[in-house]
């Protein structure tokens, strides 16, 4: 089935790269490097040049930190979305938020996708997305409230839990009026999960792909990579690439990342090896 992300439709033979653009002073990887508008603007320009299909703009750090209310979040992202929309009419714009009122503000500025990274915390969010014909990313956050870390959380079967939650949220989104072509599921590595859980989700991501919903994975530089390799946030890119290659090979459709150019090459190559994506241009031995 084609994937409809707001104003753009994508055929199912190509993987998509979603570039993280943080308008936060304290996100774990970039430590506020793109908090200032001019820095975020430059980041958008760079990731588009590097081959991003989607930008995912976030105004609140996922982890613990100073409280950011809805007004402040809107202030950080809404006008910026409008500016990006005007400058890049073909670019898919996603906004990472769990709040319906923030979703409404950014959709009015031209956003295409709401990345509900905290798994349906605000039940009104999907109705807002439906009103604006936007896409929704349905995540498994293990039932945690926004911005909380897991503590001794366990599952009988973490992948089964991811599927049950995300498919349930997806069905709820469709029931609320979201276009069935515009619903994406995401197991949400690290969210409500320890490192063993995230490794297992990575290993078994094909089971989520088998649900038929397009799968987004967000593994970029996360703690499960760091704990697996014993590396700090700035040194996890190779582990990230390994996890990205595994999930791309299994059919994950959207890859949410910091390193865009490398990921573009990696996921395109993995999809071509898997036989889903034709080579860009093949003449060797065929002339």
């Amino acid at each position: 089935m084609n994937l409809k992300l707001g104003h753009r439709t994508f055929t199912d033979d190509l993987p998509l790269v979603m570039a993280i653009v943080n308008r936060t002073p304290d996100s774990f990887f970039d430590q506020g490097a793109t908090y200032a508008e001019d820095k975020a603007w430059e980041r958008v320009r760079l990731v588009v040049e590097e081959g991003a299909d989607i930008v995912d703009i976030g105004g609140v750090r996922a982890g613990y930190g100073p409280h950011v209310d809805a007004a402040e979040e809107i202030d950080r992202v809404a006008a910026f979305v409008g500016r990006v929309r005007a400058a890049y009419p073909d670019l898919v714009i996603s906004v990472d938020t769990w709040r319906a009122e923030v979703a409404r503000a950014v959709l009015e500025q031209g956003a295409d996708v709401i990345n509900d990274a905290w798994g349906g915390h605000d039940p009104d969010l999907v109705a807002v997305a439906a009103e604006h014909d936007a896409a929704v990313i349905c995540t498994h956050a293990g039932g945690l409230s926004p911005r909380t870390d897991p503590f001794r959380q366990e599952y009988d079967d973490v992948v089964a839990a991811c599927i049950e939650t995300t498919v349930g949220l997806a069905e709820r989104a469709v029931a609320a009026g979201v276009d069935p072509r515009s619903v994406v599921i995401d197991p949400a590595h690290d969210f409500g999960k320890n490192t063993f859980h995230s490794l297992e989700v990575t290993r078994r991501i094909g089971e989520m792909v088998a649900t038929g919903y397009p799968v987004l994975v967000s593994v970029s530089n996360k703690d499960f990579v760091g704990e697996t390799l014993g590396l700090p946030a700035g040194e996890r890119m190779h582990g990230t690439y390994a996890a990205t290659a595994i999930t791309a090979m299994a059919g994950a459709r959207i890859h949410r990342v910091h390193q865009v150019r490398e990921t573009r090459h990696l996921v395109d190559m993995a999809w071509s090896i898997a036989g889903r994506r034709p080579p860009l241009r093949a003449i060797r031995g065929l002339a």
Binding site: P278, L280, R281, A282, L286
Partner: peptide
């Protein structure tokens, strides 16, 4: 008899357009 003309060898871009 350019094999690149065959659909089984089609890429995203056509080198023999």
């Amino acid at each position: 008899g350019v094999l690149a003309l065959l659909p089984e060898y089609a890429g995203l871009e056509d080198p023999v357009a």
